[in-house]
Every structure is written in C-alpha cells, then in structure tokens.
C-alpha cells in the first residue's frame, strides 16, 4: 500500500531537521511503522527516494535495529525483559507464562491482532526488575500474575497505565512520538518511580546533602596531561587508541 501523501510530507519534514538529511532515517522508519504498522517496501522506497540513497541501504538500516518490525505488530507490543538480571528475578518465568497464556511464541502476534509478544534486552530499569514494556512504556516490578492481568486488560480494551508513565497508547501512536511528533502525554505519570527515589529518601531522612557550593577542595590531583589521563582510563582499549593517535 503506498504511503499517504501527508506521510511523505512528514518524512520530508523529518529529514529537514538535520544538517544532512540521511540523519533522519531512523525517525523516518519509526514514522513508517506508525503509519503502516511495520516496515513496508513502500516505506523503504519512500525513505530511499527522499534521502537519495539506495533501497538496499535503507533495508540495511531497517534490518539492523530490533525496533523495526518486518511483520505486522499488534496494537500492543509487549516486551518482557529476559536479560540476566530481570530473567533471574523472574523475567524468564513471566515470559514463559505469557507465551503459554497468549499461545504465541517469541515475536509473534495473538490471533486477534492485539498483542505482539517479544522478549527484550535490558531496558535500563533493573532496579524495577522484573520489568516489562508495553509499547515501550515501563511496567515495573512484574510477576507472572500481574503480567497475565496486564495482557488481559490490554486485550479487553481496559485502560492500562504505565507504572512510571501515562496511559498506554497504541504501538503505532508510540512510534509516531519516536519519529519526533510528540503527543500530549509528557505531563502524565510521576517524575520518578519509588526505586529511583530510595537514595534520595534516605538522604532526606538522614539530612545528608552535597557540600555547599562555597566549599573548596583540592583540585591539584586532576590528571592534566593526556598520558596520565589515559593511564587511568578504564579500558586498555582507550590506551591503545591513544597510542595510535599519538604515533
């Protein structure tokens, strides 16, 4: 299906945000997904044409990133983190339970087209493990039971809220935001979840603070030549590269 004319115009608009238009490709592909529900040949061709690159190059990019889908995605993309920490904290069991409950395998969509289940890699929410993502909104501290309730609610069309964000929109709507066309939900949800605040809370309780601005310290020990800094760089890799740079 060819992309609507408005979409082509928006694709061009994305490309124009950047000093070199090819930089727009990732957001453009997000926009294609928001319109077509996946990466389509028409989407690839439209991007290639606008960016004046080959369709093979676009395809090379579209197949590199895991968020780009080559099969239709359901209304809700449900990701279960099964990277080590979440897996061990229960993510593996959650994922098993959902596969069973939804009767789908990894990266498959339920027959009603509502839910696409996928196990995902670490989503930077380890302090809320086990974590799930619905259309890339955080669903923190899940259990197999809560996960089942969650997907049931999604399928039933009940409103679902992110534990650290707004009410969940559809996957296509989410993709549109990632393309750089904001919706109006930024103000929903809390500033931070409970785990994000534990340290702060303790500090408040203990009356701990950072030193006041006037305090002065001894800044002399700062490594000030490159050689010394490099010695302290964390990886030997950094060192070899610096050596190469100097040589």
């Amino acid at each position: 299906m060819p992309l609507p004319q408005e979409t082509v115009a928006e694709l061009e608009e994305i490309a124009a945000r950047y000093p070199q238009k090819r930089s727009g490709l990732l957001p453009m592909l997000h926009l294609v997904q928001s319109v077509a529900g996946q990466i389509t040949p028409e989407g690839i061709e439209a991007c290639a044409e606008i960016l004046e690159i080959s369709a093979a190059e676009v395809s090379g990019v579209a197949t590199f990133y895991t968020m780009y889908k080559r099969r239709p995605v359901g209304d809700y993309h449900v990701g279960v983190c099964t990277n080590t920490l979440c897996a061990i904290m229960g993510g593996d069991l959650i994922f098993e339970r959902l596969k069973d409950h939804l009767d789908v395998g990894n990266d498959e969509t339920t027959e009603d087209g509502k839910i696409t289940l996928e196990h995902v890699e670490c989503n930077a929410a380890c302090d809320y493990a086990p974590v799930m993502m619905v259309n890339w909104e955080f669903m923190d501290n899940q259990t197999p039971e809560s996960a089942v309730r969650l997907v049931d609610d999604l399928r039933a069309g009940n409103e679902v809220r992110s534990t650290r964000g707004p009410r969940v929109v559809t996957w296509r709507e989410a993709e549109r935001v990632l393309a750089g066309f904001p919706d109006d939900l930024a103000d929903e949800g809390p500033a931070a979840g409970p785990a994000s605040l534990v340290g702060l809370k303790i500090a408040r309780e203990q009356g701990w603070t950072a030193p006041s601005g006037s305090a002065s310290g001894d800044a002399d020990a700062v490594p000030d030549d490159k050689g010394e800094a490099v010695e302290h760089a964390d990886t030997s890799r950094a060192e070899s590269e610096t050596t190469a740079e100097e040589s």
Binding site: A48, S54, A55, A56, E57, V58, T63
Partner: peptide, 15 residues
C-alpha cells in the same frame, strides 16, 4: 548491495 541484518546473522543483501 548492502550489509543487512546484524551480528551473526549479518549478511550481504539487496532490496
């Protein structure tokens, strides 16, 4: 022709 896919599945491909 371009490299498509990623990691161990990376391959040369066309559109």
């Amino acid at each position: 022709i371009a490299l498509i896919e990623r990691g161990a599945l990376q391959q040369v491909g066309i559109y």
